[in-house]
Every structure is written in structure tokens, then in C-alpha cells.
Amino acid sequence: MKRIAMFLGLTALLSTGFYYLTIQYLPNYIYHKFYTKVVNSGDRKVNEFTMTMAPDETSRLVVKPNPDFAYASAFFDVSDRPIRITGDMPDSTYWSVAMYYPNTINFFVKNDLQFDSSSVDISLGTQGQNTDVVAKTDKGFILIRLLIAERDEYIQQHMLSYLESLTITYL
């Protein structure tokens, strides 16, 4: 009887521990799973943008995708040197630059109206590096959203050319 009680007590204690560990590290786990899937799905390099046109039913990497957007995304790594994001975006529609930590917190977002022009030019680094955006971690994710409200193929292709202008270089 005593052994059963001890077993149950140990199980309850460990369950509580696993519960809090799950809550604490689930975002990092989901991010890592996403990272692994993306990296394994093709020739994807860190600090390099990849374009994604408007998601559809086959887009199953990230939950609740918005089919009205085209995306440029990149995993960043500024452990060696800070980086610079540049490119030309349209001046006629919504777009934004967002950055996320591996725990999925959105630590930076700036939209087209908040930029001085339709040119993107942002430097990103960690503490101690003199950059526009200072991240608390040296790795993370950059997501640039470009609104394409119409489902016209010509417009979509035209918009894609803007995303293709985006580059990441080392400072």
C-alpha cells in the first residue's frame, strides 16, 4: 500500500513538472519543429530570404496562414556579425517587416507607413552591436508580409518581384 502511494505521489509530482516544462518550452519546441521542417524541405540557408506566394490548402507549415499575403522569410543568425536587410517594396499596399525570437515572441514589427520610403534598410544585431534593431537572442526568424488583396496572377507575379529584391548581407 505504501509503495503504491509512493508511486502515485511520484507520478503526481513528475506530472506537475512535465506540465510546467511543456508550457515553458512548447513555443521553442514548435519553433524548432518548424525550423527543422523548413530546413529539411529544401536548400534553405540561414540569413537568406525565401519567397512564398499566397498560401493555399497545401500550405501546412504554419497554422492559420493568411491567403491574402505573399511572404519573404529567413532564419537569422547574428552570432558572428550583424546583418543588414535591404530591398525595394511597393508603395501602394500594406507590407511589414517582423522579427521573432525562437520562443516565438514578435520582438519587432514595422509596416510600410512607418518607413520613410518604400525602401527597406534595417540592420539587426545583438546587444553591443550598433544596429537599428537589437535582438536579445542571436538567432530567430524574419517574416516580411506583402498584402496582395486581389487574386490576379499578373498582380501576384508583379508583387513577387518586390519580394525578390530583398536581400540580407553581413555588416
Binding site: I23, P27, I30, K64, T104, N106
Partner: peptide, 14 residues
């Protein structure tokens, strides 16, 4: 909060 958003709305904006 982080766990919930990561689960049902990964890469949501502020």
C-alpha cells in the same frame, strides 16, 4: 500566453 499563441497562431503579430 506564449504557449497558446505558438500553438494556435504561430508568428502572429503584436
Amino acid at each position: 500566453q506564449r504557449a497558446l499563441v505558438a500553438l494556435v497562431g504561430l508568428f502572429a503579430l503584436r
